[in-house]
């Protein structure tokens, strides 16, 4: 829904690239996944800004607004996803920036992923997701295939 709004408003014309902020929130340092995904998105023509490790929700939301991104890709392996991802959504709302899409991945149990999606996360990509699937998700305007 948010995406339709954005496209309609013409913020990204057909010639413009999607802009995505990727980041690690929480304290763990497992950055293999986020780096591989960042590279795959870049190779697919997406403008990727990788914010690095140990970003707080406040830092992520600030950077996303500053960098005028379309979406935030969050990676977590520490088990803190049910605290930190909802906090990002909350802060985006507070800053009147809810049109920024949030998606994520990492070690996140399926029932938690369902709950996060209920809260407004566009997608959670678990281990074993193909890069192709993530690239297609971004290219479709952050939507899963029907």
């Amino acid at each position: 829904m948010a995406v339709e709004k954005k496209v309609a408003a013409g913020r990204r014309g057909a010639h413009q690239k999607w802009r995505v902020l990727t980041c690690k929130v929480g304290l763990d340092g497992h950055d293999r996944g986020v780096k591989v995904v960042s590279r795959a998105l870049r190779d697919a023509g997406v403008e990727v800004i990788y914010a690095g490790l140990r970003q707080t929700p406040e830092m992520v939301v600030e950077a996303a607004i500053q960098e005028d991104v379309d979406a935030i890709g969050v990676s977590l392996h520490s088990g803190a996803h049910m605290t930190l991802i909802p906090r990002i959504l909350e802060l985006l709302k507070e800053r009147d920036a809810s049109e920024i899409i949030v998606f994520g991945g990492g070690i996140i149990p399926e029932d938690d992923a369902l709950e996060l999606k209920r809260l407004g996360v566009a997608e959670i990509f678990g281990p074993g997701t193909s890069l192709q699937a993530i690239v297609e998700f971004v290219n479709r305007g952050f939507q899963q295939a029907a």
């Binding site: 929480g26 304290l27 763990d28 707080t56 520490s78 088990g79 803190a80 996803h81 605290t83 930190l84």
Partner: peptide
Amino acid sequence: DMPTLMGYDSDDPLSRGEVGHC
């Protein structure tokens, strides 16, 4: 857990949501 590995006490703001998880 992650806060212990990263040298933060459990009541540090950066430990929120991480205590006892890993």
